[in-house]
Design a protein around this nucleic acid. Sequence first.
DNA 1: CCCCCCCC
Length: 602
Amino acid sequence: MGVIARIMHGEDVPQPVLQILGIKRINTNSDQERYRLLMSDGKYYNSYAMLASQLNEMQHKGLLTENTIVRLDKYMTSMVGKEGSGKRVLIVTELTVLKSGEEVKTKLGEPVTYENAAKPEAAPKAAPAAASAPVKKDQSYNYNNNNNNNTMNSTMNGTLNSSLTHPIASLSPYQNKWVIKARVTSKTAIRTWSNARGEGKLFSMDLMDESGEIRATAFKEQCDKFYDLIEVDNVYFFSKCQLKPANKQYSQLKNDYEMTFTGETMVQLCDDADDGGIPEIKFDLVPISQVASMENKAAVDTIGICKDVGEVQTFTSRTTNKEFKKRELTLVDMSNAAINLTLWGDEAVNFDGHVQPVILVKGSRINEFNGGKSLSMGGGSILKINPDIPEAHKLRGWFDNGGGDNISNLVSARTGGGSFSTDWVTLKDARIRNLGSGDKPDYFQCKAVVHIVKQENAFYKSCPQTECNKKVVDEGNGQYRCERCNAAYPNFKYRLLINMSIGDWTSNRWVTCFNEAGEQLLKHTAQEVGEALENDPTSAEKMFGDINFSSFIFKLRCKNEMYGDMTRNKLTVQSMTPINYKEYNKHLIKELKEMTGIGPAN
DNA sequence: CCCCCCCC
C-alpha cells in the first residue's frame, strides 16, 4: 500500500519519502502566506498537504519545485471539515530535500488521487492507537452537565493523540468540531471591567502549537472555572471555544481569529510524555544595544540582568482617572548596554529585584521619550524570571564576574549624548502643524536665540520636602505653609518658573522654563537666582542679561492647555544645550541633501 | 463581553 494511503488512514509513518507534483499558494483571507502541496508516493497523490509556515522559506528559495523528492521528517495530520465528511489534512513541519526537481525531471509512477482509491474507513476513532497517548480521566475538567461530561470522556479517553487533534492554524469560525493540543505561552491576571455595556471579569491566554498561535479569553463564569487550571508552559487539549475575528489593534499574535471560552468549553491537561510535538515558546532575542536603533512602539524580545530596580510607583492616569502601579527595572546585557523595562500592576508589586535575576521578556513595547528608548510590558508581553536557557546562564556568569560594571550605552537615557533623535521643527511650523493639539504632548527641537528673559515671577518659594514642589504660603511669622503636605515649615526652597521669548529664523515664541531648565538657562542654582532677585538686583540683572542673544538647541514640549475657557498652546523647555556645530552641521547637510537631492549618499 | 499601561 502506498505511504500516502497509510498516512491518510491515520498511521504515523516515520519519515515517508514523497515526490512533490505541485505547490501553490493558498488564498487566505489575510496576508498570511500558506502553501498547499500536491504530493505523490508513486501510487497515490494527495492535494490535502500543507506546508507549515516556518517552511515557507524553502519555497522562497525554490527548493520545492515540481518533481522534487522530499523526506517528511516531521508532520501531523488532522481532520478538517464537517464530521463524517471530514477530510484529513497533512501538515508538513520539517522536511529534507533528497533530490531536486531539476535532477528528477519527471513524475515517478502513475499515481491516482487518493480520494479515488477505494475508501477505507476514515473515521477518526478507527485510527490505530500506535501514536496515542492515553489521557488521565481524572484530569478531565468539565463543569457542565453529565451529557457533556460523557461527550468529553468518549472523545478524550484513550483516543486522543496528535494525529487526531487540529492544528491551531486550521481553526476558523466556520467549523467547531475540533480539539487542539496547545501550549499556554502566557496568561494574564484576572481583570475586571465596568462600562456602559455591563461589567464582569476575564483573563486571557496565548496558545501555541506547531502550526501557529491564538489568543483565548475566558469571561465571567469561565474565568472563575479555568483561571487556576491554566498554567503557563503546560500543554492542554482545548475544545468547544467560540472563534471570532481577532482585533489586530490589540494583539500582535499571528492569527486572524481569537477564541472565547463558552459554557461548553473543555480543557484538559496533556500528559508530559505526550507534549513532545508542541514547541516551546520561541524568543527572538535582541541585544539591548540594538534596541536603540529600533522603531518606536516595536515589539522586542530581549534578555538581561536586572541590575537595578526601582520602587513601586502609584499614580492616577490623567486621561482615564484610573490608578496604576508601575515599577522600573534596569536591564544590562553583554552588548554593554542598559535599558529600562516597566512592569505594571501585580507584576510590578510582586517583583523582587534585589537578587539581580536574569529577566527574559517577550513582546515588550518600545517607548521613546526625549531621545531615550525604554521597554514596557503591554498586552501579550511575557516576562520570565531566571529562565533555564543557555543565554540566561551565560549572562549570569558574565554579570557575576563584573560584566555589568562598566555599562556605557544607556539606551533609556533621555538626553541621548548629542543625538538629534527628536524631530526638528521650526517655531513657525510648530504653529502651522498644530503641534500640541493632540491628547499627548508633542516634542520637537529647534535652534533658537534667547531674546528676552523675564525677571518678574521668575521664581517661587516651594515646599522644602524633597518630592513636593508645591508653592508655600508665607505666613509672615517665619513659617511657610504647604497645602499639599498640610504642614508648616520654617524653611522653603526656591524654584524657578521663567518665561522667555526665543526666536528662530521663522518666528518667535514665549516659552516656559521650569526649575532645571531655568538653572541651565541662567547657569545658577535656583537658590542663587532666588536670592539675587530678592536681595541683589544688580547681580540678578547680570544673570538675566548675560544670556540674551545666545543661541541654543532647544528641546521643547508642546501642548494645548486650558486657562478658564481659553485654550492656549504652551511651549515648555525640556532642555537647552549649547550648539555642537559639528553635529548641527551634519543635520543641516542631511536636510540640504533631502531637499535638493544633491550630494553623495551617506 | 476586554482592548486600560501613566508621567517624564
